[in-house]
């Protein structure tokens, strides 16, 4: 059945989208700001992995492990250099500044790597898979992506819900000034959140690059998809982000099954439908405040 295959492929694609959305969701949840350079940071991560893998001659998977801490530092720099100043004047400033950063990043990558598409070679893993029934095949890479997405989002959800650090992050997200009054260094929490967000963006970029070709100009589209995932899944819920990724991925592959031209439109249509009929998202809750 082609339809079942389309849904399975959609879930795999959803794994990448959930990875993209993870950092955006976290940053919005903690700092109440939308990082408009998120997509371009993901592309930066993909290029770093590609360059490192090629230069040192290591597997892209190994290169990812080395690039993640670098991306984390980029996140800290983003927080310290831009967001901390911008957030003081309000959400609008941080949006404008990160939009500026998005333009800078994209064009710096264009300048260095040109507009050509390239791909990240993961050898036989890119094509290999296992059959599930007569017409459904599951690629190893897709399955791995979904597994990483589940582990990452689930792990973060557990971190936030169960650990002391998670409590500190949630307290800061709710009210940074008061968090300071109970001894939490809100700037450090923000820096950590930005580090995790940007590192996961890099991870998402790397996985995207393993499954399809990528170029410096794909950042904005990925930001858009990541954002739709966050809204579809529901703000403030990382499980929702995972579900949102799957829904967007399935919408796009099923749309493509109907007519290849409808792939992306179908994704946007689901996003608009959620906005119209379930604005709090699939798994989102109404937030309350004191």
């Amino acid at each position: 059945m082609n339809w079942i295959n389309a849904i399975v492929q959609g879930v795999m694609l959803g794994g990448v989208y959930a990875l993209f959305a993870c950092g955006l969701s976290l940053m919005f949840g903690v700092m109440r700001t939308v990082n408009l350079s998120h997509g371009d940071l993901a592309v930066l991560g993909a290029f770093l992995v590609a360059v490192l893998a090629a230069a040192v001659g290591i597997s892209p998977f190994f290169a990812v492990l080395l690039v993640l801490p670098v991306m984390g530092l980029v996140g800290v720099a983003l927080q310290r250099g831009i967001l901390s100043t911008a957030l003081r004047t309000g959400e609008m400033s941080s949006m404008l500044a990160t939009f500026g950063l998005a333009i800078v990043l994209q064009n710096v990558l264009l300048e260095i790597f040109s507009a050509d598409s390239r791909s990240l070679d993961v050898g036989s893993l890119a094509t290999a898979g296992f059959q599930l029934g007569p017409s459904v095949s599951i690629p190893y890479l897709g399955a791995l992506t979904v597994a990483v997405a589940v582990a990452l989002l689930g792990g973060l959800q557990l971190l936030l819900a169960r650990t002391g650090i998670g409590r500190a992050i949630r307290a800061t997200a709710a009210d940074a000034d008061t968090a300071e009054l109970v001894g939490i260094d809100s700037r450090r929490v923000y820096a950590w959140a930005a580090a995790i967000a940007v590192a996961t963006a890099g991870l998402a970029g790397a996985f995207f690059a393993m499954r399809s070709s990528f170029s410096p100009s794909m950042g904005p589209t990925q930001l858009l998809f990541a954002f739709e995932v966050v809204v579809i899944g529901g703000l403030g819920s990382l499980w929702g982000t995972l579900a949102g990724g799957m829904v967007l991925g399935v919408a796009q592959t099923v749309g493509a099954q109907v007519d290849p031209r409808f792939s992306i439109v179908a994704g946007h249509a689901v996003f608009l439908a959620v906005l119209a009929f379930r604005p709090q998202g699939l798994l989102g809750m109404r937030r309350s405040r004191t």
Binding site: R32, V34, M92, P279
Partner: peptide, 24 residues
Amino acid sequence: LLAFRLTGGQFAIGMWAIAEFFRL
């Protein structure tokens, strides 16, 4: 009616998604 369900940065990108929808 749709876009105003979002605020702040979400409104910003939500409008972008709507623009992309128009384009497509």
